[in-house]
Design a protein around this nucleic acid. Structure first.
Lengths: 251, 251
DNA sequence: GCCAAAAATTTGGTACGACAAGAATTGATT
DNA sequence: AATCAATTCTTGTCGTACCAAATTTTTGGC
């Protein structure tokens, strides 16, 4: 597995891409390392072998090895702190959404852009509460009730309220039992929170939001998808109003 | 001559980053170039200046410049073909989802993973057809009708049918008038199609799928969200059955 | 004068070597 | 055995060099 590499690197012998202009070098290293990460040969959380070792293993120059490492870091398969060994990060949905965070941030310059993204959140959560009203289990309801109660207890602490607010909505995503949804929720939290945090917060407002959460919860408990959807929509639309003004005042 | 650059790169006269964690070099170049891309100084579609020029502009070594280019390519801000100048790509939602494609592919190894992703598609499209049934405009309906007709006309050509099938669903995403949704649709198409293409296709099956599309369309026209959702769910669930068998037989 | 072929130049891909400074490791000292 | 200093990695960055592909310029034929 060690010295065949030169041939592999020139012609990865793997997939033939559509573009005729071939010839790439670090890609072969990336493929090999990613395969090792996925197969578990390179265990998650462990540091990558030193560059020199990789140079030997692949028979490539440091340039190429470094290039591969940089590419993998950018893709989220490695977590590289400035002066440290890159840490192997086996990808999951979470790291996937993290990896686009950089670009998404560039897209959220305008209030329109933020609104578009936020609208997709409303869209998703409308579906979530609908489904919850239709098919939440007893355990689901209990989870949601606990999140709601934590949210109520935090009304007087705006920072904690924000946290429990996020968590309440997070429960809705988890209730799907589909790991993609929590990742989506994390994405929304990461991308929208910068704008949310500019919003004024105070107990009175928190109380209103808690009331919205309770209304959503109640509708779910009463198995009323229409009411749940309506409560959710009202809740998020009104929340948007508070965010929007931070845009208007900023320009 | 090694660390003179710190002055130039550490403070590119641009944004001051928040993390005190010192020492990153290419990041400054990335920030500067990304800012130029977003501001339009580096126009979309145009090639990036030659590496040697950037070396002069930034007073950095080729190593750093190349590193920056690689990072930006991985992020989708540049499209770099092997031996060519990188092309500036101003980011949009589409390139954002493209940029995670690499990782997502790693996540779709198992039929369970594909199923989870596909379930989110069902979830989204359920909401889409619901909303369409409630608020589609005349123009929307016409677009959908045209896509449906194109789909019907392609029943005997499985390849073309697949294309028009995708397009029919794509119209549903576009009807939201939210640019995030078409990007999501493109993502589904890109990530799921490898598995979809393994599915057997023949006119008889196409006819059934067309029938499903028609049922969805009719429900939308008749403003019946429940029926639309039901038709959509049936359609995609049955489609999944045809995909699933390709997993079972593969292992 | 126009277009195609050939030569010259530019450019990206890769290799090798060097060194500073931050980690990690080792060893000495208490 | 624990602590701290000295010694070895290791990564980040720089520099130079060379090749082959791509691009531009020149040349040659019509």
């Amino acid at each position: 597995m060690a010295q065949h590499s030169e041939h592999d690197l020139a012609h990865p012998a793997g997939l033939e891409d559509e573009v005729p202009g071939d010839s790439r070098a670090a890609d072969a290293v990336v493929s090999a390392l990613e395969a090792e990460i996925l197969s578990g040969t390179l265990p998650d959380g462990r540091p990558l072998p030193a560059e020199r070792d990789l140079i030997q293993r692949f028979g490539a120059s440091r340039t190429v090895i470094r290039e591969a490492i940089i590419m993998m870091s950018a893709r989220g398969m490695l977590q590289s702190r400035p002066r440290h060994r890159p840490i192997v990060k086996r990808p999951d949905y979470r790291t996937a959404v993290d990896s686009i965070g950089g670009i998404i941030r560039h897209l959220l310059v305008d209030s329109t852009d933020v609104r578009n993204l936020f609208d997709t959140r409303i869209f998703i959560e409308r579906g979530l509460v609908r489904d919850a009203a239709l098919s939440a289990t007893k355990a689901d309801i209990e989870m949601l009730a606990a999140a709601l109660e934590a949210n109520r207890a935090a009304i007087d602490d705006s920072e904690d309220f924000y946290r429990t607010d996020t968590e309440f909505h997070g429960v809705l995503y988890r209730m799907t039992r589909n790991p993609v949804f929590p990742a989506v929720h994390a994405a929304y939290a990461a991308w929208l929170s910068p704008h949310w945090l500019r919003m004024q917060r105070y107990p009175e407002r928190n109380r209103v939001n808690y009331g919205s959460h309770k209304a959503i919860f109640d509708a779910i408990v009463e198995r009323d998808p229409e009411a749940a959807e309506r409560a959710l929509t009202d809740h998020l639309r009104s929340a948007w109003e508070y965010v929007r003004v931070t845009f208007d005042s900023a320009r």
